[in-house]
Design a protein around this nucleic acid. Structure first.
Lengths: 339, 339
DNA sequence: ATTAGCACTCACATGTCCGGAGTGCTAGAT
DNA sequence: ATCTAGCACTCCGGACATGTGAGTGCTAAT
């Protein structure tokens, strides 16, 4: 029960600090939350919490502020998940339902997430490791350039232009196209590399150069990780914390411009379906020690394939953001499933 | 000659203010620039300049700061174009040469521009009004869904998925595909709408529904303005002006998230090849009254087709930015020409 | 026209002071 | 054993006074 109250105090501190952004003192605490005890008692609890590293004071005789560790405890044991209001859920569904293709879904999702959480939002493209080849097309653009277009069963399209040292024979190209089509059509991306190993054998020597480069390009296309793309939105929300977290918005903005960083922010979230929260220094990016990241995986069908999430100051509304990220992840999965 | 000195004073004020971001006074002025006169004389000139609205003082007994009008005069008559250093030019060329496709060129360009100007950079996709159809493909993905892929002579690829109310007949689809290919192959985008008007006549009634929707989709694809896409980069540079232009970075960030706004920023730049500068309130976007925009058109071949530019505070290095924008526009045009 | 000189005006930094919020500690109440 | 009341202490931050310096406009002399 003593433990219970301490946790209640921590929760109260986090909640107050998140809403006011100001260090919170014992007196204000008993007033705003109906803990049935006096400020002095709270002070003892606070001293204990500080001892254990959950809270800290910016300077002597100031109120307390949660530490990263405090937030951690808060999200692990105290933060309920605020269920979204049903109009909110409806808005999400409507907004995403009207999207026309994958790119559109990504863009809409990132906007949506940024809007409802009022934070910076990140959405990673879903991996297409389970895609299969629906069609492949080779078309000459000029005597030395051709374009390869790859269409997957999911309706995604990959393109590659190929530059050739020697002039391309239309006949040879048609031949290669036809055989390639037979060889890879209906095959999953994952088995293409193996199929290709024996492919060039069937061609005469004078076509080999062309075949080889096409083969290499196709291999590149099917092994490329589309899921290394991340869409970003809502950076304007960063500016809201002008003073609140000091001066640090430039490094954060800089970090957010690097795809690699975005991937790291999203990437290492847990494999299972739950929401992952990384608080302050817990996240691996330099210069983002005062931000927290809330991510969830979303999947097409039952296989979890990519992540999305939000980035904000450590003093964010964890309950709300967790709920939003979770809900959006669910809906996006569902939408992509339908397509 | 009196006029001459006044202009020299204005130039000096702009230059000093741009480099220090602090109001500049008469004494500092004669020290840093070797105008051969005394501070008092300068003060008279400054009073005149203020009278005419080119400079202003933030408060009595402070130094002077250029007004938007002052900057305008400066860029119109005083700012020489700083030629880029030859290593800089080489870097631009190398960086852009290694790009593989249009998307890549756009992304690299925006990075490059942001990096050398240290401002926020914008690049608009080039219009493809002069594109012609190289190939068109229709492929069924399921019984009710199909995908249309359009390949242009420039090697660009457009895709559209089409949802159909009734099951699609493979035979009918193949028929449509073949005839469509004949009809539009090699035709410029601009003449497609006309070609399509008489296209559906050749099909029997039971195929009409399918033909109609395909036709509509194709029409949509060729008339869609790809040049309504704008790539953005270097937003982190905004944060550098933390205090310098006060509080206003949030509205700017917000504005920059709207594609429409970006288009307006770029769009109304003059049709000719020169660089356009829009200063402070001159630019049409609310909340960007304290920013200036430097844009240039770049063209594939001789037809000017799209814009790129940078956005920064009104107290930017106009000479440098103009030079950079101009140089990058030239190089991008050249690169796109080669492809 | 230009300049030197001068009085004047503010912004700003510095210093001092004080109130208030918050704390820790101790002694007494439950 | 736990809570609470009271108290002395700390220190931030706002209010006020003050001095300094950068900058100005004006006038009179060159």
């Amino acid at each position: 029960m003593l433990e219970d109250r301490r946790l209640a105090v921590l929760r109260a501190i986090v909640e107050d600090y998140v809403s006011t952004h100001e260090p919170v003192g014992s007196k204000a605490l008993v007033e705003r939350h109906h803990l049935g005890v006096s400020p002095a008692t709270i002070r003892n609890d606070m001293a204990a919490l500080e001892e254990e590293g959950y809270i800290a004071q910016p300077h002597t005789s100031a109120g307390r502020v949660p530490t990263d560790l405090g937030y951690r405890l808060f999200v692990d044991r105290l933060a309920g998940v605020k269920p979204l209001s049903s109009p909110e859920r409806r808005a999400i569904a409507e907004f995403l339902d009207s999207s026309v293709d994958l790119d559109d879904v990504m863009v809409r999702t990132v906007r949506l997430l940024a809007q409802i959480t009022r934070q910076v939002a990140l959405v990673q493209y879903p991996s297409r490791s389970r895609s299969t080849v629906r069609h492949i097309e080779l078309i000459a653009l000029s005597t030395t350039r051709l374009i390869m277009v790859l269409i997957t069963d999911g309706g995604r399209v990959e393109q590659r232009t190929i530059e050739c040292a020697n002039p391309i024979s239309e006949v040879a190209l048609g031949d290669i196209r036809a055989r390639l089509l037979v060889a890879v059509s209906g095959q999953p991306f994952t088995s293409i590399p193996e199929i290709l190993t024996s492919f060039s054998g069937q061609f005469p020597a004078e076509m080999l150069q062309l075949v080889t480069i096409i083969q290499a390009t196709l291999l590149d296309a099917v092994t490329e990780r589309i899921d290394e793309r991340v869409v970003l939105g809502g950076t304007a929300h960063l500016a809201r914390y002008g003073e609140a977290f000091p001066l640090s918005i430039q490094p954060v903005l800089e970090a957010l411009e690097e795809q690699v960083v975005l991937l790291r922010l999203l990437g290492e979230s847990s494999a299972n379906t739950a929401v992952t929260v990384r608080i302050g220094h817990e996240n691996p990016i330099e210069g983002m020690a005062s931000t927290s990241v809330v991510t969830a995986r979303y999947g097409i069908g039952d296989s979890a394939t990519a992540s999305l999430g939000v980035v904000g100051p450590t003093h964010m509304d964890y309950a709300g953001n967790i709920a939003a990220v979770q809900a959006v992840a669910q809906y996006v999965g569902r939408i992509l499933d339908e397509q």
